[in-house]
Every structure is written in C-alpha cells, then in structure tokens.
Design a protein around this nucleic acid. Structure first.
Lengths: 357, 357
DNA sequence: ATGAAAGCGCTAACAA
DNA sequence: TTGTTAGCGCTTTCAT
C-alpha cells in the first residue's frame, strides 16, 4: 500500500533507475523506446515523483514563502490571492504565514521558512524595515522580494505610489477649501505610512501651508483605533473638516465615529478612503476613494519572484522595482468647505429617481 | 558559504553525527555533556536543521495543505487566517492553493500537495463533493478535514449550521408577514447551498407553505450575478418583498440592484445578509445579518487537523465533526410587510440625535 | 544510450 | 551512552 517509487517504475519498465529518471524528466540521452516503456510503467503504477526527495537532490523546492502581517485584511487577501494564482501557473507552491506585526515572529517565521528551504521569500511584514533582514537573505542566496516595504539599500520590490496618492487626495480637499484635514494611516514606521504622510505634507507645501501635527494620526490599522481617534478629533473645538482614511479598516471606524457624533458626510466633514470597497460604493454618500489595482500588486510581486528563482531562464540579479500607481474615484463624500460652514445644509436628494411602485 | 550541516556540528562538538542528532532532538540516551557541547557548536555555527532532509527521513513534513475556492473572498480570508494562526502555534506550515471552483484544478492541486508530501489536507473547494476524492485520501493515509463540505460517508469536518441559520432568517421574515422571499445563495451543488435551501423550505413548511421555485436563486457567489438577478426579480409584477442574501458578495449586488431600481430597504423590500461586515453595519439602514464566528471555524478545522496528524498525542481515527452555530444580528433592514404595502412610507428619522454644531 | 553508484542531510537501528 | 551504518527517493556523474 506504499506509494510506488521510481525504483518500482524502473523495475516494471525493465530499465535501470537512472534511465527511468532520465525518461521521466526527458533529460539528456534517452531512447524513445525507454521513454515509452517508462511512461507506461509510471502510468500503470500511478507513480508520482516525490517532491521532497527531488528537493533533497536538486536543492530546490519550488516553494515560495509569503510573510504578511495580517491576512484577514481583505485588501491583503486580494493580493495574496493574486500571488498564489501567478505562482500556481508556474508550478510553484505558496507557503503562507502571518506575522501579526510582531517583529519577533517575523524573524522566527523567516527562519522557519529558510529551514524549509523555500526557494524565495516575499516580505510584506516588517514593523521596522531593518536592512539587515533583507540583506541577510540576499547574502545567503535566498531571493527576497519586498511587498510595499523599503529595505534600505536592498532588493527587488513592488511599491504602491502612496506619496502621489496622498498628495492627490489632499490636494483635492485643499482645492475644496479644506484646511483642517485629518490624515489617518497605519504605521508611520513602514513605507506606506511614511509615503502617505510625506504626500500629505507635500500637498500643503504646494500652497505654502503646513498641516497641524495633531491631525496626523499614524497608528497600526484598526477599526477600533480609528473610531476612538475620530471621536477624539471631533471633540475639540477646532475639529477637522475632512478625513483622509488610508487604511483598510479605518473608514468604518471614522464613519462610525461620525455617526456616533451625530455628524454626516459630506455636510459636516468630507471623507476620502482607500480601496474601492463595497462599503465605499454603497455607503450614502458614496465614498470618494483612493485606490489601485491590488491584483496587479500580487501578480507583479509574484513575477519578480519567479524571475529571481534558481530555475528561471535569465536569473536577474540586479534589483528591480515595480511601481503601482493610484487612482481617485470621485463620489459624493467630499464637499467644498464653504457649503459646510456658511450655507445651510441642503436637503438630501436621492441619487436616482424613485420608481413609481 | 554553504549552510552548516549536522556533520559540521558533530565535528566541531567532537562527537559523532548520531550523537549530535540525538542531542539536538533531545531524543533518548544522550549525556548532558554531549547536549551542551553539541548545542554550543550548533549555536556557534548558526546551524539550522534542514527540514527537507528531516522530512525525507521521518516521512513527515509538518506541512498542511489548504485548498480553498477563492481567497479573495474576505470571509474565507478570515478563516484561512485563523487556520494559519492555529497551525503556526503547533509549528506547522500552511501550503495554500486556490481552486477557483474548478474541479480539474481541485484534483490537480490535491495531487500537487500529495507530491509535496503534506501531512494533511484541509478541503473547502469542491464544486461537487465527490466521495471518492475524500475517501481516496483517507485510504492513502493522508488525513483530510472538510471545511463546510460534505463528502458522503467520510471524514472529519467543520460545518456551519446553515440549515438552522436559513430557517431562522426565513422564519423571521415570514413572521413579519413576508411571503415572496427571494433566497440568493451560492452553489446548491455544495453543502452550504443545499442546507440553506433546505432551511428556507423548512421555514415555509412550518406554516404549511411552499416558496415559489423562481425565488430560489442558487449560483456561484458573485456580485455581478447578484446584481443582475436582483434586477430580474424586481422587474416582474410579483416582485419579492424580501431578499435573503447568503453569499459574501451577494449583499452588495442586491443593494446595488435595489438602488438601481429606485427602491429602498426596508420600505420596498426587506434584506437579510450573512457575515456581519462593515457594509452591514454602516449601510443605511443597518443590514440585519445572519452571522457566525469565522475565526472559530478556522481554529476548529486546524485543531481537527492537528489531532489527526501523525505526530499527534492520540491519533484519533474516528471522524469528528464540529458544528458552528449561527446568530442573527437584528438591524433596521427588515420591516413588517404591511407597512411596505399599506401604509405610506414614513419619513426617515436619524438613528442618533444630531449634535448642534 | 544505459547501468552502477555516489550522495543530498538527516534519523534510527544496531553494535559496541 | 556513543559511534557506525543503512537508508529515505531521487538526480547525476562516471563508466560502459
């Protein structure tokens, strides 16, 4: 009842083990007759080569490790999905681990993956982008690709253009007359946070302005956090007139905060979010969103990885970077500042004509 | 520059390879002195045992395969996340693959995983729940656990109580006076769909009624599908007065359909959805939801798996089933039928008092 | 073109 | 308690 090995196949085909291997892999000098016989024997036996044994010999597993901070983030999930799909096309397997933003676990899982002899590592995890982490991998000849993270002086990666995204979103609000704009984004310790804050500041700088420091709230993404922060921001007298919500679950927290305070967008505050989600589309008012192609991110990072894999046709060694640009989807959640303060609130009008029943 | 092997460690510690192995694994008869020396040598060398070689010998990889139809489904993502977390605690790795509801790919990926010698397989994929699939695995001694799927006559699994969930939701609507209730659920070919339809029918049966066949729409989950189906259902004269949306992305499709038709919940139609999402919570009106603990599903399935793994303390052989119950979260998206037809639509009142600015 | 044989790094059975 | 040795299943020289 044990699985047939190549030995069984060779025996049955009446050839040696070596020949069987060559025939199976169509490698080098094998006669057509041998190929046919071996193939037949393999089929008859239901032979499946043992990937572990192959890895043992060839020192290549065909497995790529993916470290992500939190898969339950739907936006990450979409990326991981795309990574897997692309890898699958090339016969690569995906080993997945969550780090839960825990630096210690990050390190542990990298070791774990290395012990398992993954052929490459995709990293989107780090609390802090320690360069030695990335360089250590490259030095050991383990291809690593960064997913929206900057490891100083290192390697390939896919990067979303958060800077210009935040710039564009902020500029849009400034053009509407807003000056007290709250920026809520996860972790300024990592690239997305840093870039967004920089873009935010740049938009103000274009007009010779500077944002109030207290309005920049950079913390790990969490709905609960966003909710309480929103309440805190709304409680003061000089409350923000606009919210830029740059984290997956931040939007819901902010919307709940506004609701809890009895405020409505866009009359009381304008709102911009990221990721063109169901919520953005269906909330009333529709939420103006800063978004990008999440599937493209996953596909790109997978392709960068595949290119650097041992077996790849042209094993590119020089680092490569892919930039993913953002787009704004305009909806109804932003309004000129004047109308919010000066004019009385206009009566809400339905977005579509109501059908007569 | 090559990684140190156990040989190097043994050499440096001045012991034999066998002793080094025993010391590293703290297995059996080893002197304290040996353990100390070997440990020191391993640390000095930065030795990490090669998991592939270990697997080769022990015939156990410490890897569990997970087959899921579509990870970009946020609800699945949450489950996978929980699975990974639980597995990680026990030092198991997670090999992940999407099947995209493609029966052929399902089979291919199972073979792929088996070739990689996974220790176990978690399956939540199957278009059709072919018994031979599951039985084939068990017969080969590969532990398999089903995730909300029924493989006739087979194995362990975690099952959400969709039957009672749908029963409860439908009963709730019937109690409100609704009779033309549309049920939208993905694939009746698989367990969740079947159970939901059965629960739906059971609720009608309790009152000696029978649902109209045309109101049961069971297709693969997709927002686009839900949207067009909703429009189709709304276009007739005898349009449904309530929608039960039992698929992750179905709710958005239905809501968009209603909006497109110029209709509003709950005045024109009551709506119930699954999974207590951001959208359910923040949409106006708040969507009454049928939900369950997705993390518990993932944890349970992981634990079922761990229990059946070769190394497990008591390798349970008899199949085990875990049932996850559903809860209703009542919000504002459902209304008595009478008020929708007889009474004029009441003016909307804000959910919370509006603060004076 | 084929067969024999040497390992990949490790564990486990057997001797000592 | 320790060292020696035989593989796990496969690929890959090296002869033939």
């Amino acid at each position: 009842m044990t699985r047939p090995t190549i030995r069984d196949v060779a025996l049955r085909a009446g050839v040696s083990i070596g020949t069987a291997s060559r025939a199976l892999n169509r490698a080098g000098r094998v006669s057509q007759a041998a190929i046919t016989a071996v193939q037949a024997a393999a089929d008859a036996l239901g032979y499946e080569p043992d990937a572990i044994a192959q890895s043992m010999r060839t020192r290549s597993t065909g497995v790529v490790g993916l470290l992500v901070s939190d898969l339950s983030n739907p936006l990450y999930a979409r990326i991981v999905n795309a990574v897997e799909a692309r890898l699958q096309r090339d016969g690569c397997a995906l080993l997945l681990a969550n780090t839960h933003n825990d630096a210690q676990r990050e390190r542990a899982m990298i070791d774990f993956f290395r012990r398992r002899r993954v052929d490459g590592l995709i990293l989107a995890p780090c609390q802090s982008e320690r360069p030695e982490l990335f360089e250590g991998l490259s030095a050991q000849g383990l291809p690593a690709v960064a997913l929206d993270r900057d490891f100083p002086g290192a390697g390939s990666g896919v990067h979303v253009d958060h800077f210009n995204g935040a710039l564009q979103a902020t500029r849009y609000l400034l053009n509407l007359g807003h000056r007290r704009i709250a920026l809520m984004t996860p972790g300024q310790a990592v690239r997305p946070g840093r870039e967004r804050i920089a873009g935010f500041r740049a938009a103000y700088a274009e007009r010779g302005l500077q944002p109030e420091a207290r309005l920049v709230r950079a913390e790990p993404s969490a709905m609960q956090f966003a909710f309480s922060e929103t309440l805190a921001l709304l409680s003061g007298t000089e409350r923000p007139t606009a919210f830029v919500c740059l984290g997956t679950r931040i939007l819901s927290g902010v919307l709940q905060g506004l609701r809890h305070a009895g405020l409505t967008a866009p009359e009381d505050a304008s709102v911009i979010s990221i990721g063109d989600t169901d919520l953005s589309q269906l909330f009333s008012p529709g939420i103006t969103s800063l978004t990008w192609d999440f599937e493209a991110v996953g596909t790109a990072v997978a392709e960068l990885m595949l290119k650097r894999l041992p077996g790849a046709p042209a094993a590119a060694t020089e680092p490569e970077r892919v930039v993913i640009t953002t787009q704004m989807v305009l909806r109804e959640s932003c309004a000129p500042l004047a109308s919010a303060t000066a004019a009385p609130r206009p009566a809400p009008r339905p977005r579509v004509a109501r059908r007569t029943p």
